[in-house]
């Protein structure tokens, strides 16, 4: 365990905790766009900047809280002048890139920014290149999409910019996208994403089309469990588990007490 000061408040966290988690544990909030708790920190959006002073040092520096390790004796300011200016500039730049994104507009206006200092981009989608879609896809083991290009040309793309052959249509990329920039349409037991159509399988209990066939097969293969294990949608699966547990824990106890 180690102690550090966040905005003057002393907090104790476990060694190895990221500064962002420590800040949130202390009850403060810093904005993020490229962060997801299930994924490794990435440090691309730079919104979570904070000013830190390490123990024994005179100088402070601006760091990103998502990937900065909490250190003993650290003094952290989450709203210092340097932090606010940097964060505001990042939002100014993002607002010029995605003038139409409600998420970006809301974040910007929460910092008093209603118009960007730069000419807004024309004909650009709302991708801010946070990399969440690419990283979640990689984490799930598919790597169907990736970052392509460099500098201003950087973009999220599938190989050869064609419908990605390794995509199983799980839809995780669309779900983690902070600006809702990845179109996913479910209709008539079919899913369309990344310009590909996927047949969907229905839940054997409620009948809802809940998973693409490819994703189901990949889960069966990856887990080594029988296909029947995945025949229920998440909700029905939870409800069945609850019923089973109730039966084991409550009814079995009652039977036992009757004996």
């Amino acid at each position: 365990m180690l102690n550090l000061d966040i905005n003057g408040r002393r907090v104790t966290v476990r060694k190895g905790t990221a500064l962002l988690a420590a800040i949130r544990e202390a009850g403060f909030e810093v904005p993020t766009l490229c962060h997801h708790e299930a994924l490794e920190p990435y440090g691309a959006c730079r919104l979570c900047v904070v000013e830190v002073r390490e123990e024994g040092r005179d100088k402070t520096r601006v760091v990103t809280a998502c990937n900065y390790p909490a250190k003993a004796g650290l003094q952290v300011e989450t709203e210092s002048e340097a932090v606010v200016e940097t964060r505001r500039e990042v939002l100014d730049l993002l607002l010029a890139r995605c003038p139409g994104s409600p998420v970006i507009r809301e974040l910007a206006s929460s910092m008093g920014l209603h118009r960007s200092s730069y000419p807004p981009d024309q004909n650009r989608d709302n991708c801010i290149l946070c990399g969440l879609c690419v990283r979640v896809c990689e984490k799930l083991g598919f790597t169907a999409i990736t970052m392509a290009g460099r500098g201003a040309e950087r973009e999220v793309a599938a190989p050869l910019k064609e419908p990605p052959p390794d995509c199983v249509g799980c839809g995780s990329c669309a779900r983690v996208c902070p600006t809702g920039n990845i179109p996913l349409v479910d209709r008539d037991a079919m899913r369309r994403i990344w310009d590909r159509d996927f047949e969907m399988v229905r839940c054997t209990s409620c009948g809802r089309a809940y998973i693409t066939r490819e994703y189901l097969e990949s889960r069966v293969e990856a887990s080594g469990l029988p296909a029947s294990h995945f025949e229920l949608c998440d909700e029905c699966s939870r409800s069945r588990t609850a019923q089973t547990m109730y039966r084991h824990m409550v009814l079995d106890d009652k039977e036992a007490s009757h004996e």
Binding site: A44, R46, E89, V90, L93, G151
Partner: peptide
């Protein structure tokens, strides 16, 4: 030559 990963470098240099 920017890799384009972080906002200040990618968008900042562009602006």
């Amino acid at each position: 030559e920017s890799c384009g990963k972080c906002v200040p470098c990618r968008e900042g240099n562009r602006r």
